[in-house]
């Protein structure tokens, strides 16, 4: 019995040493907050940030705020309480998130924003976003070509509560509204998800069988529209979107989705972690606080080069 006790104590001491050694080798924890982990885009963001942070010697804490400002606030409080070294966040809202970011910065924790920006300058270490306007313009220009500059079309927006979706929609219209022979016969907000995209398309298609094209604010909505059109046997309708997930690539290769703009989700996340690391190690802030990354235009000619929101 005595031997067992000694062995158990020795094992406990050894594991304690092992834990401490691991803790000593870690540079601390980087918290990574994204909207949702079951959406391919946000999952890619989280995976990119986690991989980069761990490669740099940090532990990671990956959580989703579900686009809920209150929940995001709690995540920030928790991270501050845990004394994390830095926070990478795709924030829940561009205005309401200012206070949460400010709170972390006041606690000495640098915050890198990815994808969604906040409305105030000078608080976050860096704000890395996609050029949603350019992505929207590129996709709309191709949509115009595919439509032959005329015909009835539908716009399915991602989520008009999301500033990025609003920007994409504005970019669409800056292009499309210059073509008087292209007529938008319906517009519906599909909350950025596949099922509402399909349901919206189902009902719009019933009322407007003559539609020639559908321009979508993001990938899941576009895939939802395609599912609806396939059910209705309508493979003649032009569908375009924005995002660049693996599912979209498969759809492009199958000739269903005609074009998209790939948003560099992983690249933004990696750059965010690098900025935080640079600041923690050398006290250096990025040259510019707001940095835009281009959306890469994708069609059948280059869909093979995309995997997990990375362009190779």
């Amino acid at each position: 019995m005595k031997k067992l006790t000694v062995l158990a104590l020795a094992a406990a001491t050894a594991s304690c040493f092992a834990f401490n050694a691991q803790a000593a080798s870690s540079k601390g924890t980087i918290a990574i907050f994204v909207n949702a982990l079951d959406n391919p885009y946000y999952a890619a963001e989280a995976a990119g940030a986690k991989r980069q942070a761990e490669a740099m010697g940090y532990d990671t804490l990956v959580l989703a705020h579900d686009e809920d400002v209150k929940k995001q606030n709690e995540l920030f409080d928790n991270a501050i309480g845990q004394k994390v070294k830095g926070i990478i966040v795709d924030c829940a809202d561009s205005t309401a998130s200012v206070a949460a970011v400010q709170k972390a910065v006041d606690a000495g924790i640098p915050v890198a924003l990815i994808n969604r920006e906040i409305v105030k300058d000078g608080i976050a270490l860096v704000q890395l976003t996609h050029n949603n306007f350019q992505a929207g313009s590129d996709v709309a220009n191709r949509f115009v070509e595919l439509m032959g500059e005329k015909g009835d079309y539908v716009e399915l927006t991602c989520s008009l509560a999301d500033n990025n979706c609003v920007t994409r929609s504005k970019a669409f219209h800056q292009v499309l509204d210059q073509y008087p022979d292209m007529k938008m016969i319906a517009r519906q907000d599909c909350k950025g998800a596949l099922l509402p995209g399909k349901q919206a398309m189902d009902s719009i298609l019933q009322a407007n069988p003559n539609i020639k094209g559908v321009i979508c604010g993001n990938g899941p909505v576009a895939l939802g529209a395609i599912a609806s059109l396939k059910n209705a046997g309508r493979n003649d309708v032009v569908v375009v979107g924005i995002d660049g997930s693996n599912d979209e690539m498969a759809s492009i290769k199958a000739g269903e989705l005609k074009a998209t703009a790939m948003l560099q989700a992983q690249e933004l996340a990696v750059q965010g972690v690098k900025a935080v690391d640079e600041y923690l190690n050398n006290g250096k802030k990025p040259e510019k606080e707001r940095v835009m990354h281009k959306g890469i235009f994708i069609d059948k000619t280059n869909a093979d080069r995309v995997k997990d929101f990375l362009y190779q």
Partner: peptide, 16 residues
């Protein structure tokens, strides 16, 4: 430049 706007939509409007 874009930094004079810090708003993609307004910068787009400027281009238009």
């Amino acid at each position: 430049s874009y930094l004079d706007f810090n708003d993609q939509t307004v910068y787009g409007e400027f281009g238009e």
